Amino acid sequence: MTEKQQNEGVGFALRKISLDQFAVLKEAYQEGEKVHYDVSLDFGLNTELKMFRVSSRISFAQLPPQPFLLIEGSAEFAIEPDAWERFILEGESAVVFPHGFVAHLAALTVGSLRGMLYIKTQDTIFNRFLIPTINVAEIVGEDIRFDFAVPGESV
């Protein structure tokens, strides 16, 4: 992908937000103990519908690192067909999504989870555990590449 292609605007639309998992494990929480959080991201595609999926899992834990609060959710984004075609690597059966674009979609997903967590813990002692601002660009780190199986090739 050329620098020009990376810098062009990418048309997309948020099509679905899902709360995939939520758990509060009260027995794993000790008042007054230090709390840390962990964030993970995962990505997927629906090539037929030209959809990009971002899944995020955020957990709050103390030592030992058994989480006492866990939320996992995802967002599905429809990618404009012209942009989708720009991401396909010419001569290869692969598609590459630019780092900055993926980080933007991941930030939207994490922001959605932030709101879901707030609502799910409302009126509980766990409502004070907010998902902080997270630099998802550091988590993503690089462009995201998906390789496709070519019919007739063995894997």
Rank of each mutant, 00 (worst) to 15 (best):
S74I: 15
S74T: 13
S74A: 15
S74L: 13
A75P: 00
E76I: 10
E76F: 11
E76A: 02
E76V: 08
F77N: 15
F77A: 12
A78F: 15
A78E: 15
A78C: 12
A78G: 13
I79H: 13
I79D: 09
I79L: 10
I79P: 14
I79Y: 14
E80D: 15
E80I: 03
E80P: 04
P81R: 01
P81E: 07
P81T: 02
P81H: 00
P81S: 08
P81F: 00
D82E: 15
D82V: 12
D82W: 12
A83K: 15
W84Y: 12
W84N: 02
E85H: 07
E85F: 05
E85C: 06
E85Q: 08
R86M: 09
F87C: 14
F87V: 10
F87Q: 06
I88W: 04
I88E: 15
I88C: 13
I88N: 12
L89N: 10
L89C: 14
L89V: 15
L89H: 09
E90D: 09
E90Q: 14
E90W: 11
E90R: 14
G91S: 02
G91H: 02
G91F: 08
G91A: 07
E92I: 01
E92M: 06
E92H: 08
E92C: 06
A94N: 03
A94P: 06
A94H: 03
V95D: 07
V95M: 01
V95W: 00
V95N: 06
V95C: 04
V96F: 01
V96K: 10
F97T: 11
P98F: 05
P98H: 09
H99G: 01
H99V: 03
H99W: 12
G100F: 00
G100I: 06
G100V: 07
F101N: 13
F101S: 08
F101K: 13
F101M: 04
V102G: 07
V102R: 06
A103C: 04
A103E: 07
A103Q: 04
A103K: 10
A103I: 01
A103L: 04
H104M: 08
H104K: 14
H104N: 12
H104D: 14
L105E: 04
L105Y: 05
A106M: 05
A106D: 11
A107W: 00
A107Q: 05
A107S: 11
A107H: 00
A107C: 00
L108Y: 05
L108E: 05
L108P: 00
T109E: 05
T109P: 06
T109H: 03
V110L: 14
V110G: 04
V110K: 02
V110Y: 00
G111Q: 01
G111V: 04
G111A: 12
S112R: 03
S112E: 07
L113W: 01
L113V: 11
L113E: 03
R114G: 05
R114P: 07
R114L: 10
G115M: 10
G115R: 13
M116V: 14
M116K: 15
M116W: 09
L117W: 05
L117R: 08
L117H: 10
L117D: 07
Y118M: 10
I119T: 11
I119M: 08
I119Y: 11
K120M: 14
K120V: 03
